[in-house]
Amino acid sequence: MLIDLTLCMGCNACQAACKEENHLSPNEEKNLSLTAYTALNKYSDVYVRRLCQHCDVPTCVSVCPVGALVKQGDGPVAYDADKCIGCRYCLQACPYHVPKYEWSSTKPRIQKCRFCAPRLAKGQLPACAEACPVGATLFGDRDELLLEAARRLGAEPTKYVPRIYGKDDVGGTSMFYLSSVPFEQLGFDSRLGRVPLPMLTMSALSKVPNVLSVGGVVLGGIWWITNRRTEVAAFEAAEKKGETPRPEEKP
């Protein structure tokens, strides 16, 4: 989806539609929560719509030990509560602080935007994109939306900051933002680079097979050497005393 912050008027129709679609309590909320999968954050006169970014290389999917979070081919990052063990690594790791946890429940799940996966399957638009009265949220094919974003930047270079947020941030996301105000001033974390965060973990995890194989051989070798040394020392001590004959001379 392409979210053009310069068009958004803050009418909150997206949140209302989202709440209706997902059967959540209909009150207006200013922040993401268990009952708000999208919310508008106001920065002076700019409204920034928060929701799950449905990253291309999702951090939450990579950290989940049981694979309860899955990136689907058509975009959505889906969650399976039946698999979830409740380790909350996704909450800790998500660079956008999206997943919310049912802390008050004794069988807690996480809650977050599902990208209206059931609607997409039926060929419908996500509820929020359909509800937006001014077209600030556009739904479409990722490449086509990127072209559209680039076209807008090219057509009005003075209006926009020259950046499509989400094009390649943390490896690219399914949500793109255009803005007239630098993104750093709108609560977008400037410390997140372009490298997908799971790569940071893989640099360590990829060494696991090496540690196992090389480590196994080295430890085995050390055992063999030190064992041999003890044997030789014992044998020499015995030989000195002249008590034991050489083993090969034994009958």
Partner: peptide, 10 residues
């Protein structure tokens, strides 16, 4: 249920 990309799984 395995996820070889997860440190937690390891």
């Amino acid at each position: 249920m395995w996820n070889p990309h997860s440190v937690m799984c390891e």
